[in-house]
Amino acid sequence: MAAGGDHGSPDSYRSPLASRYASPEMCFVFSDRYKFRTWRQLWLWLAEAEQTLGLPITDEQIQEMKSNLENIDFKMAAEEEKRLRHDVMAHVHTFGHCCPKAAGIIHLGATSCYVGDNTDLIILRNALDLLLPKLARVISRLADFAKERASLPTLGFTHFQPAQLTTVGKRCCLWIQDLCMDLQNLKRVRDDLRFRGVKGTTGTQASFLQLFEGDDHKVEQLDKMVTEKAGFKRAFIITGQTYTRKVDIEVLSVLASLGASVHKICTDIRLLANLKEMEEPFEKQQIGSSAMPYKRNPMRSERCCSLARHLMTLVMDPLQTASVQWFERTLDDSANRRICLAEAFLTADTILNTLQNISEGLVVYPKVIERRIRQELPFMATENIIMAMVKAGGSRQDCHEKIRVLSQQAASVVKQEGGDNDLIERIQVDAYFSPIHSQLDHLLDPSSFTGRASQQVQRFLEEEVYPLLKPYESVMKVKAELCL
């Protein structure tokens, strides 16, 4: 049975990233139509530049190519590739079939990587351009969430054990800070992308030097003109047959890092959902379990974690691919890159769409948070109580021993009897502590235990987050809708 299948058929496997999760716009960027249309555009740009620099290419040939950029006979191309065992030459023939007058000058002087690699770089750039505003929107939604809850005390956790208090907004800023680093890295790697350009079979530009009869300047002009037509500021000066596969490492490393950030955020949300302090959106008709109707599973956060793990592992592909590119190139890269580049971007696209949807509907339960604080705060307040007693004339050592005994009794009630923490009640009825009984409410005010959390939130948002989001103001209103 021949390899390949009808990918629109229910009898043929289709990647869930495309069929179930990723956005239509990201799927289109990695589609065959987008790819092969870009090949034709690159052939047109090459012909236009070659004509401008004096090669015998007519206006009629150029116009014929322009008129057929979208006229792609995919069936013919597939048949040609089956016959020739070469995808680029299959599309040269297919393009030439609908451009008979231009057929002889299509791909003039070029090698397969002229269309293959340059198209990949265009796709990487455009895919990054799709991700950047999506990530900015996630940051914006979380920034709104953090600002609104900047002063809401909550129990902090280290080692997932109760620690000092923080605020809900401050905790959210930990998430935002990681995503801001990801946004900066995505922008950097996007701006650092260079075009492969017009380089020939081993990167020496020998074929173009021959076409222009040894004119170095025209060869350099050709490279520059096509690079500018493709919208790049610069091209690699040095290439082998391909652009260095280190570029793929750079791009997928940034995406993998984004995956790590999203995994951490969504894990926190899942843990908070278990504590009943916070939940992701839950639709009115949504079913959490087929057997347990009360369940409210954090399905979206779980999906993000599941896909983020996949995204983090994909960076190993370009690392290994770059390491086995012998001399000017081997074909070890080809099949692998067809999979890992598309999957990385479709996965990143999915987790950003999902995280935006989550961040637009996060639900906080202040009463649950308050109750958990009441359970733990008495123990945390013991040092403040000791200091207040010393100020009232008591002995630190005597007070410490009193607190120690009462704390152990209260802990026994919590752990052995399943009761509430009654340390404060014990202190309130103990005559030894009568000098500070009137101060206990103040000493137990949760806001006095959150330090500068709310001020940190305000400063972080104003100095770091809002300036970073400013270039994306025009796209901030787009909502994230999930079908599944």
Rank of each mutant, 00 (worst) to 15 (best):
Q416L: 12
T313I: 13
L331T: 03
S334Q: 03
D317A: 07
Y34C: 12
K246G: 03
Y365G: 02
L484Y: 14
N336T: 15
L444G: 05
V168T: 08
K367R: 12
T58N: 11
K224S: 13
Q320H: 11
D215R: 11
V405A: 14
F282N: 12
D223I: 00
N274T: 11
K479L: 04
I249A: 11
A3P: 06
A3F: 12
T38Q: 07
L275V: 08
D216M: 10
K82Y: 09
E250N: 13
R452E: 07
H159V: 01
R33D: 12
P56K: 11
T202E: 01
K199A: 14
V457F: 03
L53A: 10
D420N: 01
C340W: 02
L443N: 02
I249W: 11
L352G: 04
K134G: 13
E213G: 13
T166L: 11
R372H: 12
E81K: 01
P24S: 12
I122V: 07
T313K: 06
Q408L: 08
D6S: 09
I238H: 09
K477A: 10
C304Q: 02
A388S: 07
Q161T: 05
Q375G: 06
S434K: 11
D117I: 00
Q428M: 13
S12Y: 08
N384M: 12
V226A: 01
R329A: 04
I62V: 11
A127Y: 03
Y243F: 14
V364E: 01
I269Y: 05
M65K: 04
N274I: 02
A453W: 03
L209Y: 11
C99E: 04
A77C: 10
A392S: 09
N357G: 10
P56S: 11
T350W: 04
V413R: 10
R188H: 11
E228C: 09
M65L: 12
H91D: 03
S289Q: 09
N353I: 11
D422G: 06
T158M: 00
V368S: 07
A342T: 14
T119R: 01
A77Q: 15
G419R: 15
A49R: 01
P133G: 14
K246P: 02
R85K: 13
F28R: 07
Q41C: 12
R14T: 15
C98S: 12
Y13E: 07
T313C: 14
T321S: 09
I265M: 15
F449C: 05
E462P: 05
I249E: 02
R296G: 02
I265W: 10
G8E: 15
Y294P: 03
S207M: 04
F208R: 02
L258M: 13
Q320P: 03
I238M: 10
K264Q: 07
L108A: 14
L341A: 13
V138L: 13
C483T: 11
K284G: 14
K479I: 11
F212Q: 04
G104N: 10
G104L: 10
A77I: 15
N353D: 12
K229M: 10
L377A: 03
D191Y: 08
